[in-house]
Computed example of a mutant assay.
Amino acid sequence: MKRELEEGSPETLPAIRTVSLLEWATMYLDHAQAKFIGKTYSEKRMAFRLLLQSFSPDAEVAGLHKGEILAHFSRQAQNRSGHAANKDRKNLVAAWNWGVEHIPGFPEQNPFLTDRFAEDRIPRPVPTEQEFWAVHDAAGSAQDRLMLLCYLHLAARRSEIFHLRREDVDLDRRQVRLFTRKRKDGSMQFDWLPMSDRLHAAMTEHLAITSGPWVFPDPQTGEPYIARQHWLGRLCRRAGAKEFGLHGIRHLSASILIRAKVSLLDVQTILRHTNLTTTQRYVHRLESVRKAIEVFE
């Protein structure tokens, strides 16, 4: 008996149990809900929901096999899209790495590191300046026109303008404070951006005739907008422009800055990217490529 214990005989060593898929999912999603914005948390929750449809919630994480995981992602790619499968893969890889770091006895080998799937990405519509101003002029209220101007002149993300407070607008210093969670650690951070002369004049006039804590309250509720799904689409149709979204305006802002020969570092500051490569993706380097092909003429 002593010799068997020293040699680790299988008959005498107790089995070591790892956490179940449901336990792992619950712990990670509790963490994700506290750390990430709602959209990111919803993506992670959906990835786990689909995973638990393919595997028993009571199954142990140690029993997951890379081949079975690949088959799961393959079904997602076929039923949804390669982009959706890759997004689930990214979120589950991150969840597994979190488990390795925070759950005792969690297996280190990550079974979700499978091959990625081909993606047929549809380019995000980016308006021209003429299309933007046509839509701006088609807006039915001065508040809506100012909101669109903020998106263009501040290169803002959707929620940053929806949740803008009066205290975030410093008319004396001619600057606006924008809050975001688009950071690696998920923390709420802010940046002050200067206002253009046109934006400053419009904002001064707007705040003089409005009350309440919000700069752009929903007229029906007095609270910030949560979503305006069809608003911009209706304006585009009214103006006779191809449809684009609020994030398309952010891309337009970057293009205007580059055409004006603003330095890439200044563009990065205005877009508030922590990584310069992210800014470069916005820029697309079209102007430098256009100059390069002039050698063929």
Results as ranks from 00 to 15, higher is better:
D172H: 13
A142G: 02
T278P: 00
L146S: 02
P107A: 14
F73W: 00
A292V: 10
E243C: 12
T18F: 14
T26V: 08
I258Q: 12
G233S: 11
R17V: 09
A155S: 05
E108A: 15
A202K: 09
T221R: 06
P107C: 15
Q53H: 03
C236N: 00
F244H: 13
R89W: 02
R158K: 09
G222N: 03
V169G: 10
E7T: 04
A71V: 03
G8I: 01
D191R: 13
T128L: 03
I161W: 04
I249E: 05
F55Y: 05
P57R: 04
R3E: 13
E7F: 05
H102I: 03
V93T: 13
I122P: 07
Q220L: 09
L252Y: 04
C236V: 02
Y225W: 06
G233N: 10
R121K: 11
L50E: 06
N91H: 15
G233I: 01
I103W: 00
C236D: 00
Y151Q: 05
I249H: 01
T269V: 06
T277E: 11
N110P: 01
L271V: 09
D120E: 12
E108H: 12
L92T: 01
R121H: 08
W133N: 04
R198M: 10
I122E: 15
H65A: 11
P14L: 10
R165M: 08
R272A: 06
R124G: 09
L199A: 07
T269F: 04
S255Y: 11
N91P: 02
E7N: 08
E68W: 06
H83M: 08
P104H: 05
L252A: 10
V289H: 15
A201T: 14
R237K: 10
L276M: 10
